[in-house]
Amino acid sequence: MNETVTYESHQDVATIMIRRGNKLNALNNDVVEGLRDAWMRFEASDDRAAVLTSEGDRAFCVGADLSDPPAEMWEAVPGVGVSVTKPVVAAVFGHCVGGGYILSQHSDLAVVADNTVFMYPEARVGFTGGLCSGAAVRVPHKIAMEFLLLGEPLTAQRAYEVGMVNKVVPLGTQLEVATQMAQTIAQSAPLVVSTIKQFADRTVPLSPSEEAAHARRQLVQVSRSSDGQEGKAAFLEKRQPSFQGI
Protein backbone atom coordinates (compact mmCIF):
# COMPACT_ATOMS: atom_id res chain seq x y z
CA MET A 1 0.00 0.00 0.00
CA ASN A 2 1.41 3.42 -0.91
CA GLU A 3 1.22 6.48 1.34
CA THR A 4 -1.69 8.10 -0.52
CA VAL A 5 -4.15 5.29 0.29
CA THR A 6 -4.38 3.39 3.56
CA TYR A 7 -6.20 0.18 4.49
CA GLU A 8 -7.29 -0.66 8.01
CA SER A 9 -9.28 -3.71 9.10
CA HIS A 10 -11.44 -3.88 12.23
CA GLN A 11 -14.22 -6.33 13.08
CA ASP A 12 -14.50 -7.58 9.49
CA VAL A 13 -14.78 -4.05 8.09
CA ALA A 14 -12.07 -2.51 5.92
CA THR A 15 -11.59 1.26 5.98
CA ILE A 16 -9.96 2.49 2.79
CA MET A 17 -8.87 6.12 2.96
CA ILE A 18 -7.46 8.48 0.34
CA ARG A 19 -4.79 10.52 2.12
CA ARG A 20 -4.04 13.43 -0.16
CA GLY A 21 -5.91 16.13 1.68
CA ASN A 22 -3.36 18.80 0.79
CA LYS A 23 -4.42 18.28 -2.84
CA LEU A 24 -8.13 17.95 -2.03
CA ASN A 25 -7.72 14.18 -2.47
CA ALA A 26 -7.33 14.58 -6.23
CA LEU A 27 -6.65 11.43 -8.20
CA ASN A 28 -3.15 10.96 -9.58
CA ASN A 29 -1.37 7.73 -10.51
CA ASP A 30 -0.35 7.04 -6.90
CA VAL A 31 -3.92 7.32 -5.64
CA VAL A 32 -5.33 5.24 -8.49
CA GLU A 33 -2.75 2.50 -7.94
CA GLY A 34 -3.35 2.66 -4.19
CA LEU A 35 -7.09 2.27 -4.60
CA ARG A 36 -6.67 -0.55 -7.10
CA ASP A 37 -4.40 -2.39 -4.67
CA ALA A 38 -6.82 -1.71 -1.80
CA TRP A 39 -9.76 -3.21 -3.70
CA MET A 40 -7.67 -6.26 -4.55
CA ARG A 41 -6.67 -6.63 -0.91
CA PHE A 42 -10.30 -6.23 0.21
CA GLU A 43 -11.56 -8.82 -2.25
CA ALA A 44 -8.95 -11.35 -1.10
CA SER A 45 -9.42 -10.61 2.61
CA ASP A 46 -11.79 -11.92 5.27
CA ASP A 47 -13.32 -8.44 5.58
CA ARG A 48 -17.01 -8.54 4.72
CA ALA A 49 -17.63 -4.87 3.91
CA ALA A 50 -15.57 -1.78 3.18
CA VAL A 51 -15.87 1.93 3.89
CA LEU A 52 -14.32 4.32 1.38
CA THR A 53 -13.46 7.81 2.60
CA SER A 54 -10.79 10.53 2.47
CA GLU A 55 -8.85 12.70 4.87
CA GLY A 56 -9.79 16.26 5.77
CA ASP A 57 -13.17 17.97 5.65
CA ARG A 58 -12.96 20.14 2.52
CA ALA A 59 -13.14 17.58 -0.27
CA PHE A 60 -13.86 13.88 -0.53
CA CYS A 61 -12.24 14.01 -3.96
CA VAL A 62 -12.09 16.69 -6.65
CA GLY A 63 -11.51 14.19 -9.45
CA ALA A 64 -8.43 13.82 -11.61
CA ASP A 65 -5.40 15.90 -10.70
CA LEU A 66 -5.09 17.97 -13.87
CA SER A 67 -1.45 18.79 -13.08
CA ASP A 68 -0.64 15.08 -12.69
CA PRO A 69 -3.45 13.14 -14.37
CA PRO A 70 -3.70 9.38 -13.86
CA ALA A 71 -3.15 7.18 -16.91
CA GLU A 72 -5.90 4.68 -16.07
CA MET A 73 -8.36 6.34 -13.70
CA TRP A 74 -10.93 3.55 -14.13
CA GLU A 75 -8.62 1.19 -12.21
CA ALA A 76 -9.50 3.06 -8.99
CA VAL A 77 -13.21 2.31 -9.27
CA PRO A 78 -14.65 -0.65 -7.32
CA GLY A 79 -16.34 -3.13 -9.61
CA VAL A 80 -14.73 -1.54 -12.66
CA GLY A 81 -10.97 -1.55 -12.12
CA VAL A 82 -11.19 -4.53 -9.78
CA SER A 83 -13.94 -7.10 -9.38
CA VAL A 84 -15.44 -6.46 -5.93
CA THR A 85 -18.07 -8.94 -4.75
CA LYS A 86 -18.53 -7.49 -1.26
CA PRO A 87 -20.41 -4.27 -0.36
CA VAL A 88 -18.73 -0.86 -0.29
CA VAL A 89 -20.07 2.12 1.68
CA ALA A 90 -18.83 5.60 0.72
CA ALA A 91 -18.43 8.26 3.43
CA VAL A 92 -18.46 11.50 1.47
CA PHE A 93 -17.99 15.14 2.45
CA GLY A 94 -17.21 18.53 0.96
CA HIS A 95 -16.49 18.76 -2.74
CA CYS A 96 -17.16 15.54 -4.64
CA VAL A 97 -16.27 16.24 -8.25
CA GLY A 98 -15.76 14.19 -11.42
CA GLY A 99 -13.90 11.02 -10.56
CA GLY A 100 -14.82 11.54 -6.91
CA TYR A 101 -18.46 11.26 -7.88
CA ILE A 102 -17.67 8.08 -9.86
CA LEU A 103 -16.20 6.51 -6.72
CA SER A 104 -19.40 7.34 -4.86
CA GLN A 105 -21.61 6.20 -7.74
CA HIS A 106 -19.98 2.77 -7.84
CA SER A 107 -20.20 2.24 -4.09
CA ASP A 108 -23.23 0.27 -2.95
CA LEU A 109 -24.25 2.78 -0.27
CA ALA A 110 -23.34 6.40 0.33
CA VAL A 111 -23.45 8.48 3.51
CA VAL A 112 -22.74 12.16 2.92
CA ALA A 113 -21.96 15.04 5.24
CA ASP A 114 -24.27 18.02 5.06
CA ASN A 115 -21.53 20.13 3.44
CA THR A 116 -21.26 17.77 0.45
CA VAL A 117 -21.60 19.24 -3.02
CA PHE A 118 -21.55 16.94 -6.04
CA MET A 119 -20.46 18.24 -9.43
CA TYR A 120 -19.64 16.68 -12.78
CA PRO A 121 -18.09 19.39 -14.98
CA GLU A 122 -16.69 17.27 -17.84
CA ALA A 123 -19.00 18.78 -20.48
CA ARG A 124 -17.68 22.20 -19.50
CA VAL A 125 -13.99 21.28 -19.52
CA GLY A 126 -14.08 19.28 -22.74
CA PHE A 127 -13.20 15.68 -21.91
CA THR A 128 -14.80 12.59 -20.42
CA GLY A 129 -14.01 9.01 -19.53
CA GLY A 130 -17.65 8.10 -19.97
CA LEU A 131 -18.14 6.24 -16.67
CA CYS A 132 -20.45 9.05 -15.59
CA SER A 133 -23.12 7.74 -17.97
CA GLY A 134 -23.86 5.01 -15.43
CA ALA A 135 -25.76 7.66 -13.49
CA ALA A 136 -28.61 7.27 -15.99
CA VAL A 137 -29.55 3.89 -14.47
CA ARG A 138 -28.70 4.72 -10.86
CA VAL A 139 -30.81 7.87 -10.41
CA PRO A 140 -33.86 9.11 -12.36
CA HIS A 141 -32.87 9.70 -15.99
CA LYS A 142 -33.82 13.36 -16.19
CA ILE A 143 -31.91 14.13 -12.97
CA ALA A 144 -28.87 12.27 -14.28
CA MET A 145 -28.89 14.19 -17.55
CA GLU A 146 -29.31 17.50 -15.72
CA PHE A 147 -26.36 16.65 -13.49
CA LEU A 148 -24.13 15.47 -16.33
CA LEU A 149 -25.01 17.92 -19.10
CA LEU A 150 -25.36 21.16 -17.15
CA GLY A 151 -22.46 20.54 -14.79
CA GLU A 152 -24.18 22.46 -12.01
CA PRO A 153 -23.61 21.75 -8.30
CA LEU A 154 -25.91 19.29 -6.55
CA THR A 155 -26.25 19.74 -2.80
CA ALA A 156 -26.28 16.91 -0.29
CA GLN A 157 -29.98 17.40 0.39
CA ARG A 158 -30.87 17.39 -3.31
CA ALA A 159 -28.73 14.26 -3.81
CA TYR A 160 -30.69 12.57 -1.04
CA GLU A 161 -34.04 13.66 -2.48
CA VAL A 162 -33.28 12.16 -5.90
CA GLY A 163 -31.90 8.90 -4.51
CA MET A 164 -28.23 9.49 -5.25
CA VAL A 165 -27.24 8.92 -1.59
CA ASN A 166 -28.66 7.07 1.41
CA LYS A 167 -28.20 9.51 4.29
CA VAL A 168 -27.22 13.12 4.97
CA VAL A 169 -25.52 13.56 8.35
CA PRO A 170 -23.70 16.37 10.19
CA LEU A 171 -20.14 16.98 9.00
CA GLY A 172 -17.74 14.89 11.04
CA THR A 173 -20.14 12.00 11.58
CA GLN A 174 -20.20 10.58 8.05
CA LEU A 175 -17.43 8.04 8.68
CA GLU A 176 -19.05 6.83 11.91
CA VAL A 177 -22.45 6.35 10.26
CA ALA A 178 -20.94 4.67 7.19
CA THR A 179 -18.97 2.33 9.46
CA GLN A 180 -22.13 1.44 11.35
CA MET A 181 -23.74 0.46 8.06
CA ALA A 182 -20.71 -1.61 7.11
CA GLN A 183 -20.74 -3.33 10.50
CA THR A 184 -24.40 -4.25 10.04
CA ILE A 185 -23.50 -5.83 6.71
CA ALA A 186 -20.47 -7.60 8.23
CA GLN A 187 -22.70 -9.15 10.90
CA SER A 188 -25.23 -10.41 8.35
CA ALA A 189 -25.21 -13.74 6.52
CA PRO A 190 -22.22 -13.60 4.16
CA LEU A 191 -23.71 -15.87 1.48
CA VAL A 192 -26.92 -13.85 1.37
CA VAL A 193 -25.05 -10.53 1.24
CA SER A 194 -22.79 -11.83 -1.52
CA THR A 195 -25.72 -13.19 -3.51
CA ILE A 196 -27.70 -9.94 -3.25
CA LYS A 197 -24.66 -7.88 -4.19
CA GLN A 198 -23.80 -10.02 -7.20
CA PHE A 199 -27.40 -10.28 -8.42
CA ALA A 200 -27.83 -6.51 -8.10
CA ASP A 201 -24.60 -5.87 -10.00
CA ARG A 202 -25.80 -8.15 -12.79
CA THR A 203 -29.17 -6.39 -12.87
CA VAL A 204 -27.73 -2.88 -13.37
CA PRO A 205 -26.85 -2.41 -17.07
CA LEU A 206 -23.24 -1.58 -17.92
CA SER A 207 -22.49 1.59 -19.82
CA PRO A 208 -20.22 1.33 -22.90
CA SER A 209 -17.35 2.78 -20.86
CA GLU A 210 -17.83 0.18 -18.12
CA GLU A 211 -17.88 -2.63 -20.68
CA ALA A 212 -14.69 -1.25 -22.24
CA ALA A 213 -13.07 -0.98 -18.81
CA HIS A 214 -13.93 -4.60 -17.98
CA ALA A 215 -12.31 -5.74 -21.23
CA ARG A 216 -9.32 -3.49 -20.62
CA ARG A 217 -8.98 -4.89 -17.09
CA GLN A 218 -8.56 -8.41 -18.46
CA LEU A 219 -6.02 -7.29 -21.05
CA VAL A 220 -4.03 -5.34 -18.46
CA GLN A 221 -4.00 -8.39 -16.18
CA VAL A 222 -2.55 -10.48 -19.00
CA SER A 223 0.04 -7.83 -19.81
CA ARG A 224 1.11 -7.51 -16.17
CA SER A 225 1.08 -11.24 -15.47
CA SER A 226 4.16 -13.35 -14.82
CA ASP A 227 3.56 -15.06 -18.16
CA GLY A 228 3.45 -11.69 -19.86
CA GLN A 229 6.80 -10.74 -18.38
CA GLU A 230 8.23 -14.17 -19.15
CA GLY A 231 7.15 -13.93 -22.77
CA LYS A 232 8.88 -10.60 -23.23
CA ALA A 233 12.04 -11.79 -21.49
CA ALA A 234 12.17 -14.98 -23.54
CA PHE A 235 11.79 -13.04 -26.78
CA LEU A 236 14.65 -10.68 -25.87
CA GLU A 237 16.82 -13.56 -24.69
CA LYS A 238 15.94 -15.67 -27.75
CA ARG A 239 14.84 -18.70 -25.76
CA GLN A 240 11.74 -20.85 -25.32
CA PRO A 241 9.38 -19.25 -22.75
CA SER A 242 8.30 -21.18 -19.66
CA PHE A 243 4.69 -20.21 -19.00
CA GLN A 244 3.03 -20.92 -15.63
CA GLY A 245 -0.47 -19.63 -16.21
CA ILE A 246 -0.08 -16.81 -13.70
Rank of each mutant, 00 (worst) to 15 (best):
G129D: 12
C132Y: 04
T85S: 12
P78A: 11
M73Y: 10
D108A: 12
S107P: 02
H106K: 04
K167H: 14
N115K: 00
R124D: 13
M145C: 10
A110L: 05
V117A: 05
A144G: 00
V80N: 01
G163R: 07
R124I: 14
E152C: 06
V112A: 10
D114V: 10
H95Q: 13
Y120K: 02
M145W: 06
T155S: 15
A156N: 00
R158A: 14
I102D: 00
L150K: 13
G151M: 12
K167N: 09
P153K: 12
M73H: 05
L103I: 10
C132R: 03
H106D: 07
Q105E: 04
P153Y: 14
V117K: 01
P121F: 12
C132G: 15
A136V: 15
A156Q: 03
V89M: 07
F93S: 00
S83L: 08
K86D: 06
L131I: 13
I143N: 04
P140Y: 10
M164R: 01
M73E: 09
S133D: 15
A91N: 02
G81A: 09
L148E: 10
L131D: 03
E146D: 15
G99E: 08
L149E: 15
Y160F: 15
V88N: 03
V162F: 09
R158H: 10
V82L: 13
P153C: 13
N166I: 04
F147G: 03
P153M: 10
K86A: 06
Y101E: 12
A90Q: 01
K142G: 11
A76M: 02
V84D: 09
M164T: 09
F147P: 02
G130V: 06
V162R: 00
G99M: 07
V97Q: 06
Y120R: 08
D108Q: 07
L149S: 13
L149R: 11
A90D: 11
G79Y: 01
F93D: 01
T155H: 08
S133C: 07
D108F: 04
L109D: 07
P153A: 11
G81I: 10
G79R: 01
C96Y: 04
R138M: 14
L131M: 12
L150F: 10
I102Q: 01
A159D: 03
H95K: 03
A76T: 08
V97K: 04
Y120A: 06
P78Q: 05
V125Q: 09
T128F: 09
V84L: 04
T116R: 06
K142C: 13
P140S: 09
K86C: 11
S107E: 07
R158T: 13
S104E: 12
T85M: 03
Y101G: 00
F127M: 14
A136Y: 05
V77A: 07
E75S: 05
A136T: 15
A135S: 12
Y160T: 09
V89E: 05
L154Q: 02
E75C: 02
G98P: 01
C132D: 12
Q157L: 13
G100P: 00
M119F: 05
M145T: 15
A159N: 03
A123R: 13
F127I: 13
G126I: 08
E146A: 14
A144P: 01
K86S: 10
V125K: 04
D108T: 12
A136F: 06
S133A: 15
